[in-house]
Amino acid sequence: MQRLPMGSAWMEAAGDVTRAQAYRAAAQEIRQRLDAHFDPDEGVYVCRFANAADRPSAAPARRLDMAVPLGVIHAARAEGPHSVLDPKALATLARLEEFFEKKYPINQERASDCAPAMGRYAHDSYCSGGAYYFSTFGAAQFYFRFAEAIGRGAMIPVSAGNRTLLADMLGEPRAALAAASVEPPFRERLFKAFLARGDMFMAMVRAHTPASGELSEQFDQTTGAQTSAKNLAWSYAAFVAAFASRRAARRLMAC
């Protein structure tokens, strides 16, 4: 969706007004469809619709799906709805973290400096059913992207959907974040907190990566042993993307 407005501007500059308008209209339609994926009762974006009426009533196993946070980071929107700064997107990732923390035995036994290993969705029956390297790296990248946005000076919206999450990250009472956006006294602390949270996901992967550095598709949710496709390109690509986002955020910290 990010590419459509860019394409629209490019076509307009090239004098093709018809295509520019078509690209803008397509982007607007996609935004509206994405908005419909939010379930106000659950407070999360759901991955799929189960009926033709386009309502957020996906099958229970797919209501929470790591595809949503992955879609957010891949879209690379700088801010606004469906970006990492979207309170609804952060709430969706937080709910996924809670789910996999309880579901996977390796998460209940993890070190204190590790975030939970992430899977795809409930009742995933493919091979070991997760955890997935690309999902766990994706969670790390989400937090690194958030930290980078803070470092670049983006407005951090505060709403009912993310006030508790942000307050917990800061170690502050909810009332301290009553404003519509995070105030300057909290920005540096929040930057460091999100960067540290991303590092915790990276630490979880490191704890379940063999000395060879090879990354399969999954590491077993009970034993941590590698399973599923060996040397999966997506796992390596997710590592590279997460590391690049971390480096971009840390450069801003040094400024």
Results as ranks from 00 to 15, higher is better:
56 P>K: 04
32 Q>V: 13
27 A>E: 02
59 A>D: 12
51 N>Q: 06
58 A>D: 15
24 R>L: 10
15 G>S: 11
53 A>L: 15
35 D>F: 05
24 R>H: 07
15 G>D: 12
26 A>V: 08
25 A>N: 10
58 A>T: 07
44 V>P: 04
43 G>E: 10
21 Q>V: 05
48 R>D: 07
62 R>C: 06
39 D>H: 12
41 D>C: 04
22 A>F: 01
41 D>Q: 14
70 L>R: 14
29 E>S: 11
32 Q>T: 10
29 E>D: 15
36 A>K: 15
25 A>V: 02
48 R>W: 09
54 D>P: 00
58 A>H: 03
55 R>L: 13
50 A>E: 10
17 V>A: 15
50 A>T: 00
20 A>W: 03
54 D>C: 03
30 I>M: 13
55 R>P: 03
45 Y>I: 06
70 L>K: 05
22 A>G: 06
65 D>N: 14
17 V>D: 13
52 A>V: 12
25 A>C: 05
22 A>H: 02
43 G>F: 07
60 P>W: 02
56 P>Q: 08
53 A>T: 11
23 Y>H: 00
67 A>R: 06
29 E>V: 09
51 N>P: 00
69 P>T: 09
34 L>R: 08
19 R>F: 04
70 L>T: 09
54 D>E: 14
55 R>V: 15
50 A>Q: 07
36 A>P: 05
27 A>I: 08
45 Y>F: 15
29 E>Y: 03
49 F>G: 06
32 Q>W: 02
40 P>V: 08
57 S>I: 11
67 A>I: 11
42 E>W: 06
48 R>K: 09
31 R>E: 13
42 E>H: 06
49 F>Q: 11
59 A>N: 07
60 P>A: 07
27 A>L: 04
47 C>Q: 10
54 D>M: 12
46 V>Q: 13
26 A>Y: 04
14 A>Q: 13
46 V>C: 03
33 R>T: 09
32 Q>F: 04
16 D>S: 06
58 A>Y: 09
59 A>F: 10
62 R>Y: 12
17 V>K: 15
34 L>K: 10
50 A>R: 05
44 V>H: 01
21 Q>C: 06
18 T>V: 14
17 V>C: 06
53 A>H: 14
53 A>C: 02
32 Q>C: 08
49 F>N: 08
33 R>V: 04
57 S>V: 09
62 R>L: 11
23 Y>S: 00
68 V>S: 05
22 A>C: 03
40 P>L: 08
68 V>P: 01
58 A>N: 14
49 F>I: 03
